[in-house]
């Protein structure tokens, strides 16, 4: 019986992973865009990205575009796999294979 991924299951982290997983592999989203898509605050989003990064589910790249710092978050292969398993588990729950 598959288990839900505790790291991904938190609502904001689920949204972050869903957004990143919707992109082609090795394509990331800028922090500001991710913030807009998820509706999270700076602090909250930063904290949850850190949790995902510690688990190896996302990579965080910081660079300067002109004089502005730009943070880009990308789902790793490990993160994509974990997300796919998490979604499969959710579907199994709905199908009644798990209680």
């Amino acid at each position: 019986m598959a288990e839900l991924d505790d790291i991904i299951h938190q609502p904001l982290r689920l949204k972050i992973m869903a957004a990143l997983n919707a992109l082609p592999q090795s394509t990331g989203l800028e922090f500001a865009r991710l913030k807009k898509l998820t509706g999270a605050t700076d602090g909250n989003l930063g904290a949850h990205i850190e949790t995902l990064a510690k688990a190896g589910y996302v990579s965080v790249d910081k660079a300067f575009v002109g004089k502005k710092p730009q943070t880009t978050v990308t789902a790793t292969a490990v993160g994509r796999g974990a997300f796919a398993r998490h979604v499969a588990t959710l579907q199994e729950i709905i199908a009644g294979k798990q209680v």
């Binding site: 299951h9 949204k15 919707a22 898509l37 998820t38 979604v87 959710l90 579907q91 729950i93 709905i94």
Partner: peptide, 20 residues
């Protein structure tokens, strides 16, 4: 979680994917 919560989670995923 129960199936209702799982459905809500999948709906959240669908919504964010659509927005991306």
């Amino acid at each position: 979680i129960d199936s209702k919560e799982a459905s809500a989670a999948l709906a959240d995923i669908d919504d964010i994917v659509r927005r991306v």
